[in-house]
Amino acid sequence: MTARPDIFGAARLGYLVVQSQRLTDWNRFGADAIGLHVDELTRDALRFRLDDRQCRFLIQRGDAEDVVATGWEIDDHGTFDEILGRVTAAGLPITEGTAEQAALRGVERLWRFPGPKNVTTEIFTHARTTSAPLRMRNTAFVTGRSGMGHVAITTTRPEQLHTYWNNLLDLRLSDRITERIGPAKLKIRFLRSGQRHHSVALANVAGLRMDPIRTAVQHVNIEIATLEDLLAAFHRVTDLGFAMAWSIGQHTNDRELSFYSVTPSGFELEVGWNPVVVTPELEATWEPSHYDGISIWGHTVVGNQVATLMSRFQGAVRSLREREATVPALSSIPRGAHR
């Protein structure tokens, strides 16, 4: 049997699709608080830019108040066909994106198929760019070969979700963190698709199949280019009255300096600066590490979190009764995996 090719390094997070009824709030949050470039396409759609790409965030009117799709940029048609082959071989339903869907996302050759937690996975081969100048409050964001950032997901089935991303994109384990929250332990694993320390983070409560987060995605990360812009964005978020979830702090594993604000849809947006880059030299000898605690300093809870904690408790209890969508066709766990 011919071994399948390893496509690590040939895919990166390209865009996110969010469904919300709060487009006015999203416009103000994106443009005035975080300082992104905002294009108002129609009454029912906004796009955020970070760079010369037409789209990094697509906000469409709908009831989910959540991320509903992740878009992965694929280097070449050969790798694209390899991924489609893996999905087809697993027996998953796969559909070609319509011309309208591709245009809204600013991409070409768009295909869509099921992802964990009912978030659609989308792949594309070419992103459309624009020469229109960026109208944003920040100097720049770090994207390029590293993609737009990362997504963090809480799950009751971490092994299955880890296997899904391994089977699909050959992501590699960067490291793990154990975060103690009172008597509970949160286990977090970080998966990279290239030089960015991680494109996907998976978190679970140790020993309990409980998910305390309402949204499918707990947070989304974007990387800002300067410390001055990070601090300015932090102050704009608080000055404009948007909720801040976690204050500025520094992570133990990737050393990123960041803060977490609450988006109008309820999941968090992490704005970070200066994380570790897994260069080819580091990649050659990289071994996953384990860290106790997610932060070296900072990242303290901001504001009155009682209502949020009660809401999460209710969601956690509900999650005990519900079975999480894991896409079993791509999530079977081989013996000895994920050590």
Rank of each mutant, 00 (worst) to 15 (best):
P5Q: 04
A11D: 00
R12F: 05
R12K: 15
T24H: 11
N27R: 15
G35W: 12
E40S: 14
L41H: 12
R43S: 14
C55S: 13
F57T: 08
I59S: 05
Q60S: 11
Q60K: 11
H77T: 13
F80L: 13
E82D: 13
T95C: 00
G97V: 02
A99W: 04
Q101R: 07
A103V: 04
R105V: 03
F113A: 10
F113P: 04
T121L: 12
F124L: 10
T125N: 08
H126T: 13
A132L: 12
P133L: 06
R135G: 01
M136E: 02
M136L: 09
N138M: 12
R145C: 01
Q160E: 15
L161M: 15
D175G: 10
T178K: 11
P183S: 07
G194D: 03
G207R: 04
V217L: 09
E223C: 06
L227P: 00
L231V: 11
L231T: 06
T238K: 14
D239H: 13
F242T: 03
S247H: 05
I248R: 06
H251P: 02
T252Q: 10
N253M: 09
Y260I: 06
V271S: 01
W273R: 02
P280H: 06
A284N: 02
E287S: 14
G293P: 08
S295C: 11
G298N: 02
V306W: 10
M310H: 10
M310T: 11
R318F: 02
S319G: 07
E324I: 06
G336M: 10
